[in-house]
Design a protein around this nucleic acid. Structure first.
Lengths: 223, 223, 223, 223
DNA sequence: CATGAATGAGGCTTCATTCAT
DNA sequence: GATGAATGAAGCCTCATTCAT
């Protein structure tokens, strides 16, 4: 799997960057360090100035790549969901049994992430933490509708659509395949958050993953 | 129901305010107008200065009531979840059948909200819109753990705990009652958001409510 | 004349300020020092930060009074033209002979200015230098039309209109009274500029004033 | 007339450019597009970066030709006034009657400009709009004196000097020939501005030109 | 010669908050 | 208790320019 990803390049909506960060040393540095910095101080406190200091480069250089910090986060999100989609596609390729596909897909979406070595400047484990903490905020803004139109959430929706299609394959008569799929994807992030911070309202502890809970839930619901 | 609420007073964690806003005209004005203003411009753009202008008062006056805008939002959230809990309690009081209780509770949590006339300075319908847009952000901060310790999320967790207990009453052997309950409460907000903004990944349109979806999901899952 | 001005207050378009600078010590300080600072370093190089340093106050305090430096300059211009109008009105009051009125008015508009002691925080002599250098720039912007609609040039136009009316009084059949009046007012500033910087295309040297040139020009033109 | 201009080359002060823009494709492109861009967004908002984007070239390439945007504008101004001088010279060549010369010269200076087809990369009509809006700003800076010494205004002054000489030819005893000439040239731009933006203080509407007003004014004044 | 990449400095502005009345 | 005034710190962003290729 690694081999393939190092040859493939994840394509991101062009509107999200000014200059493609994957094409230069500085750009890749920005990606790597923004992930680490956002993780350590949170997105609110994260500024291009601080990132600039960290990579020993000037604030303004970062503006060559990203218009503002929000777009940078959108870029990272898109990257994450692209990577997620890619993993689902590979894991379910050639599987005949739709139930098996469902199980695989949900597992991938809800399992604990570890770094995928094939992308040296993106640490998926840390990126996953950022997505858990920040992804919903990304959507809950006064510009969602514009950004949605601009295609900023297209990869996220594509992941959910893959799940929808698997559900429909299993039970074409189930009336809520879309809401079920979006609930699983979104709630799996939420359970990851709860098990770290609001431990009394989840059944999982930090090392656990919620895959079995969601697989069971979906299978029973659409049975 | 109105009658009772107008006699009852929703009690909010004292750490969330400097001076109880329900005890003065200015305080109630702050509540009423902050809800309207946050709804119209979003919480990011919301500032005490703008609120001050709106209620024809100085920003510094608002500091008499709330330390900062984040605490004000926490206050409003607490108010919302208290009100939600109160509605669940009333709706399920005296019901014998736990399945019926479950249905009632989920319905209340996921139905479309309209203004509850008994609280003149809180418009629940607008407040609901704010919660949909802002509540998760409230939690996804670097201070969650401190704020959780300080009890800022206690009312939210109480609502979920009520659902947990109903689920356990129905099936004490179900292994994921906590995660199921938190998923329902959180995802019902999420579906409300999706039906307004990301319509392709939900089965509901704006007038619909997701109650039946969630009731069905929970009943099948814990059956 | 001084006595009267110290009792009168020059009224400025409210849209030009956030808080009336004439009503507070800090505000008057801003006026006084902005005039001096703009004169010494030019409007381009003038910033609220530098002004703040000069008056030992913070940049942000100045924003309490003026939205931006352009509005501050508009304020000063309005002040200048109001003061000019007031001088014209006084100088021509009770004059029967329109020719005499014309002469007086043109003289006031084109003579060299010295400080009017009755307004302690506005040094008219320095302000005049600023108007000579900056006033035209004030108009030549992409927003003229909006600002004109908002009334930012109303005082300037009022001064010119006074001149127009005097011209029409003398010769109601002259076809270009408006253009003549605007030419005189504008060009008298221009001649003041030329005599300081492009001395080869003016007949005046620094101590001279162009009054006689303009009075002669107008009288002959409308004769 | 066109034929001659396409053979003649307007010579610009060498200090105004690094590399002569008329000698290369890119240079001519810079001229053509800077005129259009300044006209559309105004000189303040105009930057080499934006110009670079427009001509699909890098900002740094423009620095090969012009040190900064101010010098570029000075270049365009010089070009404009050179072109103006050339038109005056041609129009008044071989005229015996100085009155006729005066009329021709003033007319050329104050008439509405249309594009002169013989210079494909300079649109005189647009350039005229820029001069109306920006030329005075060009002079009202803290560096006028230096730039004047460096000869940046020499062409402008030459145009005015031609007018001065005609005036003196007509009436060698008139005391203010210089101020009169500079007033006419400067005010004709001003009237063009007023008729577009401050219509109440000019007698001309957009299609009109002020030539008759100025010719009449000068003839009467120096009679 | 032309250009892409990078950058330092600084402008404008707002925020959250305190102080004095 | 309520408010008006003032402020420091910091954010976001752009500009003009240089460097290296």
């Amino acid at each position: 799997m690694q081999d393939i990803l190092s040859n493939l390049k994840i394509t991101i909506n062009e509107k999200l960057y000014v200059k493609d960060p994957e094409t230069s040393e500085l750009g890749r540095n920005i990606l790597k360090n923004s992930i680490e910095l956002i993780d350590s101080i949170g997105f609110e406190a994260f500024t291009f100035k601080k990132l600039g200091e960290r990579i020993q480069s000037n604030e303004s250089s970062i503006y060559r790549y990203f218009e503002n910090k929000h777009k940078l986060l959108m870029y990272l999100s898109s990257w994450y969901w692209s990577w997620m989609e890619y993993r689902i596609v590979f894991a379910t390729a050639n599987l005949q049994n739709p139930i098996e596909k469902l199980e695989k897909a949900i597992q991938i979406v809800s399992e604990n992430i570890s770094d995928d070595e094939s992308t040296p400047y993106i640490n998926e484990q840390i990126l996953n933490r950022i997505i858990i903490e920040e992804f919903t905020k990304t959507m809950r803004t006064k510009n969602v509708d514009d950004e949605n139109k601009a295609g900023f959430f297209i990869v996220y929706k594509r992941v959910i659509n893959r799940l929808i299609r698997i559900i429909e394959e299993i039970n074409p008569n189930y009336a809520y395949s879309k809401s079920l799929a979006s609930t699983v994807v979104e709630s799996s992030l939420n359970q990851q958050f709860l098990k770290q911070h609001l431990k009394t309202i989840t059944n999982f502890s930090e090392e656990d993953c919620s895959s079995h809970f969601f697989i069971d839930l979906v299978k029973k619901t659409i049975q």
